[in-house]
Amino acid sequence: MSASTTQSGRGAARRRALTGRAIFAGPGLLYITLFMTIPVLLVLVYSFFQRGRFGGIVWEFTLENYVRAFEPVYLNVLSNSLVIAGTTTVLALVIGYPTAYAITRLPKRWRTVALVLVVLPFWTNFLIRTYAWIVLLNSEGPINSSLVDAGIISAPIGLLYTPGAVIVGLVYAYLPLVILPVYASIERLDRQLIEAASNLGASRVRAFFDVTLPLTLPGVMIGAIFVFVPSLGNFVVPELLGGGKTVMVGNLIRDQFLEARDWPFGAVLALFVISLLVILFAIQAAISRRINGTGKRYAAKQVTHA
């Protein structure tokens, strides 16, 4: 009898879980499937078909869109984008990592203030933030005029409409997205490990490169992905700060969808961005598994030696 009671109890709990899932998560999951998953899969499907004359597609299978992506013109844009997005990522990490480190060393209540000040610009209008750099880098702008006034340069130099301006704009846009995950990973770090390293005679530099940096690598990777991928897909910054001279994948995709009306080819280019995102996340997951593994082995060793 008791067995049947628990069974019916279990059955009720299970029914409640299923009802709960359907009522609460059902609508949201359905919405995401309809307005994100299906559209993204549609991009994948479109990449295998021929273009329609005025946008859209003709349902005839082809691999030509993929072949076309290997034409030198497009390969050039792809490699150029990788270089710009890569440089942006490295710069953002070089600035963001020590800043995140500094924030972890602030007193508790200042830490919150410092973090809010980091995220605040991220929540403001992206076009406005990019526009600010048009004003700053302009030949009549404050940077040029103060350099001239200081006698460093004799005449204004062309800062705007250069690849450098694009990189500055991208670092500016995504720096907060590096600092947050790196901060979180440094914060979680076991300080005793660093103390142990220095007690064993490691210099502070050595302790940083042998202990701190490897253990915070998962956070660094997340930060790098959050800068690298959106930089690749950004078409506003190359257009506004690069003056159309710097063409990135994002610009190509925008043009294929809105101007050339070659959706299948645009789809192939978008898949390039998505696959990079997936690959990078896979690498991140692998690194973070390995580091957790090391941590566990380390803990196990401590226990067995105790």
Partner: peptide, 8 residues
Amino acid sequence: PDLVLAIG
């Protein structure tokens, strides 16, 4: 990425 969602 917003661009991917946008074209999709």
